[in-house]
């Protein structure tokens, strides 16, 4: 049973990843491979935005998939940002020190403006 649905959209060559639900131990591997496959495709995106509007929960297993995704993006030369973090998800990002290594924007429009 999966409790995370992830959809992908492309806006002006920038991939917007929208995880909906809970990014926990069960969902982390699937989310990670979605990020890796998107970055490894022949059509390399101009940037990747993880839009966390509908992300209700993230654990350290979920953080790990963000970290692996951010690293894969960096080695592919693709800017990687997150946006629209809920208060709880932001707390996890802040306490883990991830807010220092992954760029965050208030919302999707701000993230697109930065990558545009």
């Amino acid at each position: 049973m999966s409790v995370l649905n992830t959809t992908l959209e492309t806006v002006n060559g920038v991939v917007v990843v929208l995880p909906e639900g809970r990014l926990d131990y069960d969902a982390a591997a699937g989310f990670q491979s979605t990020l890796e496959q998107t970055l490894a495709g022949s059509d390399k995106p101009r940037g990747m935005i993880i839009d966390c509007t509908s992300l209700s929960y993230v654990s350290s297993a979920g953080l790990r998939s963000f970290l692996v995704g951010a690293r894969a993006a960096k080695s592919a030369g693709v800017p990687f940002v997150v946006c629209s973090l809920s208060q709880s998800v932001r707390e996890v990002f802040t306490v883990s020190g991830f807010s220092r290594i992954i760029e965050e924007h208030a919302d999707r429009a701000a993230a697109l403006a930065k990558l545009g």
């Binding site: 790990r64 692996v68 306490v95 883990s96 290594i101």
Partner: peptide, 22 residues
């Protein structure tokens, strides 16, 4: 090490740290 750069971040070890803080 929460100050490590993206490339040097160890994968793992974060769970207990989160709980200590929260």
């Amino acid at each position: 090490d929460l100050d490590a750069a993206l490339e040097d971040r160890p994968i793992g070890g974060l769970g207990i740290h989160l709980l200590r803080e929260m």
